[in-house]
Design a protein around this nucleic acid. Structure first.
Lengths: 260, 260
DNA sequence: TGCCTCAACTGGCTTGAGCCAGTTGCTTAT
DNA sequence: ATAAGCAACTGGCTCAAGCCAGTTGAGGCA
């Protein structure tokens, strides 16, 4: 392990110095998860700075995802969350036996109650990104779009938007809220002759957009994982795209795959 | 698309109002990538607030990863970066023909010059996380640890740390900086009878730690993707673990896998 | 022509003051 | 015993002022 030794202790601004000390207390375990930080006014007094400077120090930790501030109560060391892991096996036929969707199964495994909420179902014009992957037009209402939010207990964890070419979805009943198939959307698609042979998933991480932060209640200092999933049938044709946007503090991914 | 319509326009603090307007200008394309924001002093005058309030507005955008501030020059709308995508096929034998590592190949594809730098090679005591996956002791120096940084042109993009059980690495020459094999580390391991049959990758996203931000020059408002990779041989035995920590603004992942 | 200097601009950081808005627990009146 | 109310705490946000430290370009000097 190398240390590039950037600013050294000299000329380190007070706010950063305070942040460093608090961070070290957190990393070393001196301040355990859930522990309350000194109030901004106390920190300021303790270090002989203005309140704003102490406040700035706490903010640095908030932005780093280490601390969560609660208005009127105090600032607390963030507790590690139990992770909901989305695996590449979630589309495996083996899950049909359980009768539960992989997300709900994973929630149950973590001792949480999973549920999902339908935000909207409509025939829509896809973004270029989606249109390219499905080989449909990005100028017309060429896809059926279904948007859901998944919850684990009282936390919104994922926003999931599924796109299916209208030519495939037409007349299947997928415009209804209730999916008319025991095995869900993919059951319907399979009946249409689209058997999932491969999946292709493009993964990015970024800070949430404003509306995402609101919908999923993403705390400050927490990024989202953005997965663009494409289902490909045995003929190599893409027939479904889904975008998963997941709170990174409550979820992760798992791929267990053969080397080809 | 639903909008929960949280605070409305009433009582929205000035800093957030300014941030909202700037954000909208960015999202709509009125301010293109690379465009310069008004200076903090100008913004303050324009909105009739104190400079600190305008400054706070800009900071919100910086934390959201939309804007980058340059001391003495100004604040600019961040330019989208070309992504280096790490694919699950990077361990595929097909790459041996090219004579290039997948990372360097991907850099070349993006018109960049890739290189890597060895930070350190040592016999070390693994973390519990790594020890569990390799089924070795976390109390003794049971692994060989190699740490690298990968660059694309002049940007550090990934920090990569590889762990190999000492029982396997001993006497293979992997303690030297120069890997004694045409096909790299995995060539050496294959000669030892460890043929990669499957890989297992656990993926998280988070804000960078302080040392990571320094080493990889991660700008504020940019998360990292943290991948814990495990190589498994034909007997189902794990024989190598690698942690990839990647700047999320310059890199992503790609999995193209069969449904099993 | 070429270099240097310096003024004017940029963001970085701090101060100390004030008011607002949640939270909590104690006190008081019913 | 209960409920209302209040005081004392917490963070959220703003103000106006000041100094420091990079950057840039114009002007002047050699």
């Amino acid at each position: 392990m190398v240390d590039h030794e950037e600013p050294g202790n000299v000329r380190r601004p007070p706010s950063k110095r305070i942040a460093d000390e608090l961070r070290q207390a957190i990393d070393s375990g001196d301040m355990a998860p859930g522990a309350k930080l000194p109030s901004e006014r106390d920190l300021a007094a303790q270090y002989g700075t203005a309140r704003n400077t102490a406040r700035e120090a706490v903010r640095i930790l908030i932005d780093a995802g280490l601390v969560i501030a609660e208005h009127g109560r105090g600032a607390y060391v963030r507790r590690p969350q139990t992770l909901i892991r989305l695996g590449n096996d979630r589309y495996s036929p083996k899950y049909r036996a359980t009768g539960l969707s992989p997300f709900l199964l994973e929630c149950a495994k973590q001792g949480k109650t999973g549920r999902f909420e339908v935000l909207g179902i409509e025939r829509a014009t896809p973004t270029i990104e989606v249109a390219n992957r499905l080989d449909v037009s990005d100028k017309t209402k060429s896809v059926l779009q279904r948007e859901n939010i998944f919850w684990a207990d009282d936390d919104p964890v994922q926003r999931v938007t599924t796109y299916i070419p209208w030519a495939i979805a037409k007349g299947t009943g997928l415009l209804q809220e209730e999916v008319p198939h025991q095995y869900g959307i993919h059951g319907v698609l399979e009946d249409q002759g689209h058997v999932m042979a491969r999946i292709r998933e493009e993964i990015n991480a970024r800070m949430p957009r404003a509306d995402e932060a609101r919908h999923m209640r993403v705390p400050p200092g927490v990024p989202v994982i953005d997965v663009l999933h494409t289902s490909v049938d045995e003929q190599g044709k893409a027939y479904e795209v889904t975008r998963f946007v997941m709170r990174a503090d409550m979820s992760g991914l798992l791929y267990d795959v053969p080397v080809e």
